[in-house]
Design a protein around this nucleic acid. Sequence first.
DNA 1: ATGGCTGCAAACACTTTGCATCGGC
DNA 2: GCCGATGCAAAGTGTTTGCAGCCAT
Lengths: 149, 149
Amino acid sequence: MTDQAPSPIVDRLREEGRRITRERRLLLEIIERNPHLDAAGIYLLAHQQNAKIGLATVYRTLNLLTELELVDVVSLGEDHSHYEIRGDDHVHLVCLDCGSVREIPPLPDFRSLDEIEGFEVHQAHLELIGLCEACRKKRASNESKGTPA
Amino acid sequence: MTDQAPSPIVDRLREEGRRITRERRLLLEIIERNPHLDAAGIYLLAHQQNAKIGLATVYRTLNLLTELELVDVVSLGEDHSHYEIRGDDHVHLVCLDCGSVREIPPLPDFRSLDEIEGFEVHQAHLELIGLCEACRKKRASNESKGTPA
DNA sequence: ATGGCTGCAAACACTTTGCATCGGC
DNA sequence: GCCGATGCAAAGTGTTTGCAGCCAT
């Protein structure tokens, strides 16, 4: 709880001359442990460990980390943003029925994409929207019970 | 101007028992002609031809079309939604500097993707964030003039 | 001790909704 | 004529910002 694991992100903040506060450390830990959470979800978890933390701090921290390119913003088909530590590129599989999000490694063909038709690619966001295996089966069994699409 | 081009989307609305109003026809035409506009942009264009149209109608129409899967919502890295007629899958190249959005055909490898690891793919959204050719050159020439990143 | 960071609340931008009226069918 | 669609304005979300006090450096 009180031990502070060494983190390249904390180092990076220090390099930038930013201050390492209790709030930032807490938020970072939460974001690192829970990929693609939204601001409200991050706030909720943070609040459990520090009842005084404000939603504004969550947003300010997320914006800071985004500017420093330490976190990525992803949309996941929702009307608000989700956040994740920037790491290896990956693909998001978003289920239409249960909303679950699964991450898989990049498809082979665009793993190494760094330029295409004169466009210099910095980031690739691939989102596949559809049905996860469980919801697919659920739908199939509902249909046979007489509840077609 | 007053002629009403036949449209599969209008047919589809009729099939669904929805009413074909002047407003819906106007909005459809705008969306068809201007890919990935946001609600405000659509409203602006619509307003030029029908000063009485309301923003609420724009949103209600976009939601209707989205539910019927006739239009897609795309995020394009902005904090609000953009809309486009659902058609062939394509890739968006979004420029970090000028914000321009270019569409290109799907990358070969995921063109035919309809299932992956048990997940049933309905839609694929691929967004490449980076620098368009013009902005790339602009940056290069600025750097040589002594304005590094 | 200094200036960046925080919490709070008010402000903002985008989107949705209630209600009376209008107009497609 | 009926009932869905519209316009307006008010209410709802998610996010940002102003300001006084706090705390990492």
